[in-house]
Write a protein that binds this DNA or RNA. Sequence first.
DNA 1: GTATTAATTTCGACG
DNA 2: CGTCGAAGTTAATAC
Lengths: 229, 229
Amino acid sequence: MRIVVARCQVDYAGRLSAHLPLATRVLMLKSDGSVLIHSDGGSYKPLNWMSPPCTVREGVAEDGRPEWVVTAGKTDDTLRILIDEVLHDTSHELGIDPGLQKDGVEKHLQELLAEHPATLSDGLTLVRREFMTAIGPVDLMCRDAEGLSVAVEIKRRGDIDGVEQLTRYLDLLNRDPALTRKGAVRGIFAAQEIKPQARVLATDRGIACALVDYDVLRGMDDGAEHRLF
Amino acid sequence: MRIVVARCQVDYAGRLSAHLPLATRVLMLKSDGSVLIHSDGGSYKPLNWMSPPCTVREGVAEDGRPEWVVTAGKTDDTLRILIDEVLHDTSHELGIDPGLQKDGVEKHLQELLAEHPATLSDGLTLVRREFMTAIGPVDLMCRDAEGLSVAVEIKRRGDIDGVEQLTRYLDLLNRDPALTRKGAVRGIFAAQEIKPQARVLATDRGIACALVDYDVLRGMDDGAEHRLF
DNA sequence: GTATTAATTTCGACG
DNA sequence: CGTCGAAGTTAATAC
């Protein structure tokens, strides 16, 4: 990993064209050839970058200033960094990283709701997780107290396309005589956060919305484990 | 901007929980308080980070090692960086960045197609760009050689949700007597790349697909400008 | 390897 | 200031 602080201009040509005027920035050159150009702000996204696999060629521009040309391996994307003044230049051996361990993403949410379906609607019991249909898997297929089938779509953030997805599933499921014997399949849209537009669309289509609290669910899970002893 | 290379452990608690085992990494501390933790690989995304606004508090862990605690302003997100050994530590004044100038995004695609609607379908002429409806603006509203209304949805990458979007527009537009006097409103799904599933869904719903070549369109635009002289 | 989906998405525009 | 849609999205996972 090489870290350079330099006054520079940058031009990118590839899927789009982009230009960075002369200013002081941090250039990160990773060992896989990838390059990141960071300013002192924004967020984790660099102002410009080149994704691996790619190679950096250090050359000299017409006016004699150093110019680094980064080219992608497969595509014809090109990143040109014209160096005006180098303020800092160091290299460090980092080694390979063991990587990030995550907990609390959508998969975990689905696991917890599969164990506690009644938190979505009273009397709900799980029939199957990842219930396969011709157009994809329904997150949870349940049955309510009256024996009616209920399809549950789970999102971390409930957006309009999640409602569309559940609608497609319901359209298909309601053509299945085995599922609709006692009545139409109901839909529940479950998420930690539901956008207003998504809620409106869901309600309009007769789909119930359920807000999910991950911490509460995890707490219930602990309780269940305790009761086993 | 402060750049630190250190052997460290990291723990994040917030929207999810995440952990990074002990390893050597690059820590970027931006002047707005945000922190990026980079390894020597991956892509432009850091292994872990904290978005601004946030504040870094440099403290000491129970065992005496330095521990940096980054807390978000509004939420209760917390990032803990336990420092095992500092290998490098420098600060640099970067100043505010003039920012990135882009060219070639969806807006430009829409501008070019508005000038050359016939490339989508023979005899097509533009009625209006950003034609407003109750559920949002239709990218291009056109008329074909027979005088029928044609709604065009433009995407850089044509995905299934783009087809859903156009379908919603068409449902609404086809209830407008002024538009449907000569017949139903047709739909054209235009994109630089159309995913197979999106194409199938569009075709199934009677929506035409049109592949758009940005470079060719830009070329036509140049030609048009030349012909003015 | 390809295609689909989630993401601590981030970022910009618009009402 | 929230909401909505695009992004050079990237990254993981299923097929």
